[in-house]
């Protein structure tokens, strides 16, 4: 598994496509859980988490499910925990969940990439 993270608009998607040019991507904004578990890559992964949470799904189980059923997945996600703690309770729970899920994914990933200003750095290479 490969995990690519970074703030919004940092060039993560472009970096991911350059690095993994020939894979089939799912879009986290529209894909189903089944679609995600069958794809080779998923972008806007944080939006997928938001959608799942709004449907009342438990997202903390997702890393285990991915490792079990789709361990080669390339995941592109925004880092969302770098602002002031939001007033809205769902927003607070969401950013916390993105953090917990990505911590678990990072631990199992073969590589973790962080993209800042279009430049990707491999911050973990297992």
């Amino acid at each position: 598994m490969e995990l690519i993270v970074g703030g919004a608009y940092q060039g993560k998607w472009r970096y991911a496509q350059e690095r993994f040019p020939h894979i089939v991507w799912a879009d986290g904004e529209t894909c189903t859980l089944e679609g995600l578990l069958q794809a080779e890559g998923v972008y806007r992964f944080h939006i997928f988490l938001d959608r799942q949470m709004r449907q009342g799904e438990e997202v903390l189980d997702l890393p285990g499910l991915i490792m079990e059923q789709n361990p080669g997945l390339v995941i592109v996600s925004d880092e969302v925990g770098y602002g002031v703690v939001p007033v809205d309770a769902h927003e607070r729970a969401f950013r916390e969940a993105v953090g917990r899920v990505c911590c678990q994914l990072a631990q199992s990933a073969d590589r973790v990439h962080r993209v800042v200003c279009g430049i990707g750095t491999v911050i973990r290479d297992a």
Binding site: E79, V80, V85, R95, E96, G99, C102, C103
Partner: peptide
């Protein structure tokens, strides 16, 4: 330091 939920 780190963001929210970063594992810090």
């Amino acid at each position: 330091t780190g963001g929210s939920g970063s594992g810090k």
